[in-house]
């Protein structure tokens, strides 16, 4: 096996504010291969966001090691290889929708025509072409979240980190975007770490599902999802699909 794209080794994280300390992650190790689509699944408070932020160099672990693309998360961040979708949309309210998507492209000095091309196709993809010149406050929460996704995809990042990107969306939009993201991913073959608390979603999207249990956050199972790709919505009714969902659900009950 080649060296993993993301290597998480014995990572622990303890938050401490004024004396009180919370152990958010306890000795977590995961290897993620290049081009892999991996989910972090678990109930609220189990440390999913914490782990994602550690991978993305937004947090330093209390102990343990993380290597991304054979270097520290910091170096990978300085190489502008991360695209992050936060749990809330984090849009700039003084920028229109298309200018919000343009933001990282400006920072990364992508040529202007290329910027326009990408913005146009991404707006199309997330179904917001008509809202290009609207301001964020004129959009619904779900629409704002879709802008956040488009913005992360715009830079075509080596590593895409997504923190419950679809949790604010209705079932229909969510399932459509599940497929859209998979379609983009299959074309680019980038590594994706996808945080969710929705079991069916994690099965539908992933190559592997990392199941985390709370207090403290521990890796309780890694489940291989050997469903064929491309994934289609019919698969959601397959017995194999439902068997995997049941298997993951049971792994929680063991905790």
């Amino acid at each position: 096996m080649n060296t993993p794209e993301i290597r998480i080794e014995n990572v622990s994280m303890v938050y401490s504010d004024n004396g009180a300390s919370v152990k958010a992650l306890d000795n977590v190790s995961i290897d993620i291969q290049k081009g892999e689509f991996i989910s972090l699944l678990g109930p609220s408070g189990c440390g999913k966001t914490t782990l994602l932020r550690i991978i993305g160099d937004l947090l330093q672990p209390t102990s343990g090691n993380v290597l991304v693309c054979d270097q520290t998360p910091r170096q990978t961040r300085m190489d502008q290889k991360y695209g992050i979708v936060f749990q809330s949309p984090v849009l700039f309210d003084w920028r229109t929708i298309s200018k919000n998507i343009r933001l990282p492209l400006e920072i990364m000095k992508v040529p202007r025509e290329e910027q326009n091309r990408r913005i146009e196709s991404l707006l199309e993809l997330v179904g917001l072409s008509k809202f290009a010149d609207h301001y964020p406050h004129q959009l619904s929460g779900g629409m704002q979240q879709r802008v956040g996704i488009a913005r992360a995809l715009a830079i075509q990042p080596e590593i895409l980190l997504m923190d419950e990107p679809f949790s604010a969306l209705d079932e229909f939009t969510r399932e459509k975007l599940n497929e859209d993201v998979l379609q983009i991913w299959s074309k680019t073959n980038k590594t994706v770490v996808f945080v969710t608390h929705n079991i069916a979603e994690s099965v539908f999207m992933s190559d592997r599902v990392c199941v985390l249990s709370p207090h403290p956050g521990r890796l309780s199972a890694i489940v291989d999802i050997d469903l064929p790709r491309p994934r289609t919505k019919e698969m959601r009714d397959w017995p194999e699909f439902n068997a995997l969902v049941a298997k993951i659900r049971n792994s929680f009950e063991g905790v």
Partner: peptide, 13 residues
């Protein structure tokens, strides 16, 4: 907002 600073940070701006 801290999230916005984090976003800029993640782009290595």
């Amino acid at each position: 907002e801290k999230d916005r600073l984090d976003l800029m940070y993640s782009y290595a701006a």
